[in-house]
Simulated scan of single mutants.
Amino acid sequence: MAKINWKLVDASEQIMGRLCSQIAKYILLGEHVVIINSKDCVISGRRNMVLAKYVHLRRDIRNLSNPRRGPFHSSRPDTFLRQKIRFMLPKNQRGRDAFHRVHVYIAGIPKAKKNKYLDSEPIVFQNASAERLSRKYVTIADVCSNMGWSGESRKHFI
């Protein structure tokens, strides 16, 4: 089996939408991508507007009469970012195969997986940097904590 060449992306201080679209293009071309620091990725906009949008998606869809009613939005930063990448992929077999080529971690790479990504090549997306924003933004960790995520449950993986 051939060795997989992983591309390493640090999501800290990166704009979520721009980052996800660039990564979606990369994985559709057959690249394998690992994303670290997903909790530090940012969403542009005023804090109260962004939080209201995502909290509404999480809380007001399901109800007691039909708890299986979706769509379902994750409250963990790694699966939250991974889901946004999935939304940007085609809804066919090519998109499903590409989705398996992306791995996302909340902070750093877990100790058990370090050997898998030893020779990963770091890539930086210049157009996704949060320095471009002249306005306010919110981190994914802040959004997810308002949706019900508690960061304490994942400390043993870092």
Rank of each mutant, 00 (worst) to 15 (best):
M147G: 10
I123N: 01
A2L: 05
E121C: 00
Q83C: 06
L28F: 07
R154E: 15
H100N: 13
Q126N: 14
R132T: 09
Y54V: 05
V102G: 01
Y137S: 05
V42Q: 07
F125C: 03
V104Q: 02
I123H: 01
P90T: 05
K91T: 10
S120F: 00
Y105I: 03
H100W: 12
F72W: 11
I85N: 02
S75F: 09
R59P: 04
L19H: 04
H56W: 12
H100R: 14
I35M: 11
V55N: 05
A24P: 03
I109K: 00
F72D: 06
R94T: 12
R46H: 15
S65E: 12
S129D: 09
I43N: 01
V55G: 07
V102N: 00
S12C: 09
K84G: 02
I109S: 00
D97Y: 11
F125I: 09
R59G: 08
R94C: 09
A141H: 06
C144N: 04
P122E: 04
N63P: 08
K113T: 02
I85Q: 01
S120H: 00
V55D: 04
G30D: 09
Q93P: 07
G108T: 02
R46E: 15
S44C: 14
R46Q: 13
L81G: 02
Y26P: 01
F157P: 03
N66W: 02
R76D: 08
G70S: 05
N92G: 07
V9T: 03
R69N: 08
S74N: 08
G30K: 08
K136E: 14
R46T: 12
S129W: 03
F125Q: 01
V124C: 11
L29E: 15
K39C: 14
G45P: 06
E13Q: 14
D10W: 05
R58P: 03
S38V: 09
K113N: 04
V9C: 03
S153C: 13
L29Q: 15
